[in-house]
């Protein structure tokens, strides 16, 4: 079985804090790299191969020949095969959904049992491609994987998902499936020098979808697109209610927005007091009755 990893050619803008630049100047500093989520996706695929759950790992990226850098890294990190899907559009800014469809077209022609991709790319981070790929292929999608294992009996994947606040959800998913990864579980993979050199002697094979229907750009939905230097919005912050009087606003500020609660006050010795606390614990479900 083949595991396919979809890697995005993410873009990094290197700017000095001392010399802020306008948008065009800033865009000129772009350098391609693989995002952390995509690396995690590659790692999951490779570890499945190490568990002998898949036989080969193929890395695919979409873009022009400049995207070969990404494939070179993937190859050096251990991918068995690399393919490039020729693509002209700007996948990050507008064309997430067409590029997803083209990739799905390519995947349909491969003997892929499982497709991994990064959950979000570090540069655009719209997160749409895996949804589009899964939808076009009609495969189930499991997002935010942190741990992926093959179940011993059935050709199913057992996946730990990061569901926020450090909690995990364990799901089981039949194959074929699309899995998005959020972070590296543990350890670190290093690119191998021999493979880096070997990559230079190769021509990167390109793959095109069997029938190229000419994906319409997302731009057809847009009237205008404008780029500026970002002005990040401040996070929310405690602000006194504007409907209050000046004195009340001031009082809220001085109290730090903390309101005294009319809570129960209990006097008691250690044992006595402890049973009160214990009652609350039971009530909240943190202690047995």
């Amino acid at each position: 079985m083949l595991a396919v990893v979809l890697l995005k050619k993410a873009v990094f803008l290197s700017e000095s804090a001392l010399r802020p630049q306008p948008v065009q100047g800033l865009l000129a500093t772009r350098r391609p790299f693989i995002g952390a989520h995509d690396l995690a996706a590659l790692h999951h695929a490779l570890s499945l191969r190490e568990q002998a759950a898949v036989s080969r790992v193929a890395a695919i990226t979409a873009g022009g020949s400049e995207a070969d850098v990404i494939l070179c890294q993937a190859y050096a990190l251990g991918a068995d095969e690399v393919f490039r899907v020729p693509w002209e559009g700007d996948a990050g800014l507008t064309d997430a959904s067409p590029v997803g469809r083209v990739l799905a077209g390519v995947l349909a022609g491969l003997p892929a049992g499982v497709v991994f991709c990064g959950h979000l790319s570090p540069d655009s981070g719209r997160g749409l491609v895996p949804y589009v790929v899964a939808q076009s292929l009609g495969w189930p999608l499991v997002t935010r994987a942190v741990k992926v294992q093959m179940t011993p009996d059935l050709p199913h994947l057992r996946i730990h998902r990061d569901v926020g606040r450090g909690n995990r959800e364990v799901v089981e998913c039949p194959l074929p499936a699309v899995v998005t990864a959020v972070r590296y579980p543990s350890g670190w993979r290093y690119p191998k020098c021999a493979r880096l050199l070997a990559f230079r002697r190769r021509n990167v094979p390109t793959l095109s979808p069997p029938s190229s229907p000419g994906m319409p750009s997302e731009k057809r939905w847009l009237a205008d697109m404008e780029m500026t230097r970002a002005r990040p919005r401040p996070k929310k912050i405690f602000t006194p209610d504007e409907n209050l009087s000046a004195a009340e606003r001031m009082k809220m500020i001085v109290s730090g927005g903390l309101k005294a609660k009319k809570g129960k006050v209990v006097d008691g010795s250690g044992a006595d007091a402890a049973s009160k606390v214990y009652e609350v614990l039971v009530e909240c479900g943190y202690a047995p009755k």
Partner: peptide, 10 residues
């Protein structure tokens, strides 16, 4: 010191 730290940042 009656005012909390950073209380006027908002």
């Amino acid at each position: 010191m009656d005012f909390p730290l950073g209380c006027f940042v908002y």
